[in-house]
Design a protein around this nucleic acid. Structure first.
Lengths: 203, 203
DNA sequence: ACGTTAACGGACGCCACCGTCCGCTTGGCT
DNA sequence: AGCCAAGCGGACGGTGGCGTCCGTTAACGT
């Protein structure tokens, strides 16, 4: 009854665990989250049971696989906030975020909670959102960011960015880069401002 | 050997055929093309065999279901071309196209050849592309449309628009409307023009 | 009213995925 | 060296989509 779970995996198990994560990251990046658990297992060269033993649910696998990217997100936001020129910081955030997401189809899915259930990523996500919110306020104050910009417009932009497809990952990133440039142009305040249609609840 | 196919369906068969098409349109509109043939059949209240008899392949069903929208596309392009103000015509095309696609997830999939194989829609599509190409040239001549706009940027925009999701179809359309406004802003020529990253081959 | 045949849909065999169980292997500790 | 549990993966029953076959029903022409 007083069994203690060993919190250290056996060497081979640890090895498998990491190969699984690598495979998951690779597959999720190129194909989004529409990858079967078995496919991940096959790619990692392990049996299905092994995969399920380490990650009982796909949720768990996804969460683990993308913590790194999640921290990158925080870093991007912090970096933008640190820029003395808020508008430059803001546009930098957009460009880098688009690129990050273009390289990681699955990450976007997860970030957008294509997994609708509460993601463990939520906390970090909130932090990032807060940081960007502050950055946006500053960018508005300098007059470069249009006044009617809403934070959810970034979500809109990310969803849109997710839709971009191309024959190769490299092409996708290139296309996304151009898209980001367009979006930055759209977010910039301008004399020819026609009023913007309202933004509905997105989630 | 000299059997003649009757080109007129029996009354009940014709009825079923139309119910199938209606169901397909409804399901494709809200869920994209990721709908199983059986699901369409169930929704239409017919057996799988009946569906397959009328539309041997999903391709055929999709093609038939969306000819109407395809013609709408042509109409939108013609309408824009007819506008005496090319820029207003151009922006109108963008707004209307985004709305059309936002209302029809599946149509976007088909239009983007999510069905990679040659779509019968190709001919109409080519016509539309040509019309818009002419419209864009005129809009550039008036100085309203940025010079570095490429026709593929519309494809980029459509792919992006496809990524926009929302809890309800109405919300999706609203979000798409706002997105279109942003994109129009981005396409407008402006004094603060930083060079645009190049666009890769998209298909 | 009736026979012919177009049209129907239930049922089939196939395959992929799902999450789990269990007998064998092997790493790690003494 | 030898034990033993941590770890493994093949195999299983279940579900659901796929496209097709075939026995039954009922629409239409006479």
């Amino acid at each position: 009854m007083t069994d203690r779970l060993p919190h250290t995996l056996r060497a081979d198990a640890q090895d498998n665990r990491e190969r699984i994560l690598e495979s998951a990251r690779a597959l999720f990046a190129t194909q989004g989250l529409n990858v079967s658990m078995r496919e991940v297992a096959r790619h990692a060269g392990v049996g299905p049971a092994t995969l399920y033993r380490r990650f009982p649910t796909k949720q768990a696998l996804v969460t683990e696989a993308f913590t790194e990217q999640l921290h990158t997100c925080r870093a991007i936001a912090d970096e933008g906030l640190a820029d003395p020129d808020p508008w430059r910081g803001f546009t930098g955030v957009i460009a880098k975020t688009c690129e990050l997401h273009a390289r990681n189809q699955g990450f976007t899915d997860a970030f957008m909670s294509a997994f609708p259930n509460a993601i463990d990523l939520a906390a970090d996500r909130a932090y990032t959102v807060n940081a960007i919110s502050e950055l946006a306020r500053r960018a508005k104050d300098t007059g470069h960011l249009r006044e009617d910009f809403a934070l959810d417009d970034l979500i809109l932009m990310l969803m849109a960015n997710r839709g971009i497809q191309a024959p190769s990952p490299a092409a996708r990133v290139a296309a996304s880069r151009r898209f980001a440039a367009f979006i930055i142009q759209a977010f910039q305040s301008s004399p020819t401002r026609s009023p913007l249609p309202p933004l509905p609840r997105l989630a």
